[in-house]
Amino acid sequence: MILKICDLRVYYFLRDKVVRAIDKIDLEVPEGVVFGIVGESGSGKSTLAHAIIRLIPPPGRIVSGSIFFRDLDLVKLSEKELNKIRGNRITMIPQDPISSFNPTVRIGDQLLDVAIHKLGLSRREAAKIIIEKLKLVRMPSPEINMRKYPHELSGGMLQRAAIAMALLPDPDLIIADEPTTALDVTIQAAILKLIRDLVDDLKKTVILITHNMGIVAETCDKIAVMYAGQIVELGDVYDMLSEPLHPYTRALIMAVPRADREIERLEPLVGEPPSLSDIPRGCRFHPRCRLAKPICKREEPPLRYLDSKRAVRCWLYV
């Protein structure tokens, strides 16, 4: 396991309420896979991504739990120790590359800055490694594009530059937070293929955060589905898609219109996700669940493993 998260809780302490952004997260990410974390807005998927590298902005904080990266508990590390891991062994691909680059500095200089100051390379070494990574991400005409400012590059090219930057320290784990949301589908496909190559060819591990079941299906090896701050189901992608167990996972798959087949009538989920400051008692999904039983209203179901790979948080499977 490259990453092992136990009972992780991240709460935001607002003046008049506590927002339980993620709650009781248990997750193991094996080495050399694309691990997908799927959920709708407010499900806590981005908070989870940021918690892994301990970038939770106040008034939020990690309330309890552990995040083991190999044998180091990231929750317990000092900021100084953490900085040897963050941006080094673990890097991030942003959701919106245009806002993750400094608009007033040429792209190439921003990459150089990271290579020289964060990684301590000489200018010559830095330039060599940057060109190498740009080739890896198939950046067209790298010498020309590196002299451009962020606004002069297309979204797809900027995302390639951001991926090159994430690869500079030769990290073990890369967290990609909705890396293609801002991109068109043809460009999205190219970026997802590139992310897949990072795992298949370079043996990296990628955590891919997304709201799109299609992306998950085509790119990930394993996935976890999040709802209202918790993982409700996890397993191998093929199994999860061919036989989704949790009623929410099922509903999520059923609610998506398909480009590959005719659907007579979509079945929308009733209601809306709960507010994280006012979470329903019992199972968090029960107010929207067609199969809810009396126990679902009273007690929160545990995330229970059905076999070594598949786990579900639902009373139907206990």
Partner: peptide, 10 residues
């Protein structure tokens, strides 16, 4: 277009 079909791979 990514499609949530088991076995369809990028």
């Amino acid at each position: 277009v990514p499609i949530a079909e088991p076995g369809r791979r990028i």
